[in-house]
Computed example of a mutant assay.
Amino acid sequence: MTSRISRRTVTAAALAAGLFALTACSAGSPSGSATTDAGYQSQDGSFTSWVVGDRQGPVSVSGTDYAGAAQDTGDWLGDVVVLNTWYAACPPCREEAADLVDIANDYADQGLHVLGINGVDDAGAAESFQRTFDVPYPSIDDRDKAAVAALQGVVPIQATPTTVVLDRQGKVFARIVGMAEGSTLRALVEEALAEDPA
């Protein structure tokens, strides 16, 4: 009698877990529909990646950086792009900064571009953050929310920080919601860089 109850309990738990996993994968899709081969971890820093046929885009993000220079991801087609939303007083943004800097430096010669998107800070706060963490890549002043709006129709930005990896065609390869853990982002970047440019 006891073993029968235990088996039923285990079976019910397994079915519930399976249904939760299917729901989570559907919620991770940029278009709101289920994707195949999507990776998902239900915790802060969760990520979703898409196989070539399921990728949305291309995405084009442009704006003016804090040094006054124009930045446009369209200029980087053929390379891999990492977009990262952040602001100076954001604790997880500060925690992930060193990993983003390392990744930007380590893969720059292999065709990686990193672009920050800051929708909160004025130039003083943003530039102080960039000096503190020795950030080698530009960040655009997105207080008008134009860059985030360009992303929203393709890959929703649900939190700050959010990190989006674009493939060489400018399509959404992966998204990390919350703090980007260094080894996770590094693995996604390496996978995107390894893809056939054609």
Rank of each mutant, 00 (worst) to 15 (best):
M1I: 05
T2E: 15
T2G: 15
I5T: 10
S6V: 14
R8P: 08
T9D: 14
V10H: 13
A17Y: 11
L19R: 05
L22Y: 06
T23A: 12
S29I: 05
S33K: 07
S33P: 02
S33Q: 07
A34M: 11
T35I: 12
Q43S: 14
S46R: 15
S46Q: 13
V52K: 15
R55Y: 01
Q56A: 12
G57P: 09
S60I: 12
V61G: 00
S62G: 08
T64K: 14
Q71G: 01
G74H: 09
D75S: 15
V81C: 02
V82N: 04
V82F: 04
L83F: 02
A88P: 01
E95D: 15
E96V: 13
A98M: 04
L100Y: 05
D102W: 12
D106T: 15
D109V: 09
V114D: 07
L115Y: 04
I117L: 00
G119Y: 03
A123R: 00
A126K: 09
F129D: 00
F129E: 02
V135P: 00
Y137S: 03
S139P: 08
I140N: 00
V148P: 03
A149R: 07
L151P: 00
V154L: 10
A159E: 08
T160S: 09
T160F: 09
T160C: 09
V164P: 01
V165G: 14
D167H: 01
D167K: 02
K171M: 13
V172H: 01
R175G: 03
G178C: 03
M179P: 12
A180E: 07
E181N: 14
L185F: 06
L185Q: 07
R186I: 13
A187E: 11
L188E: 01
E190R: 15
E190W: 12
L193V: 11
P197E: 01
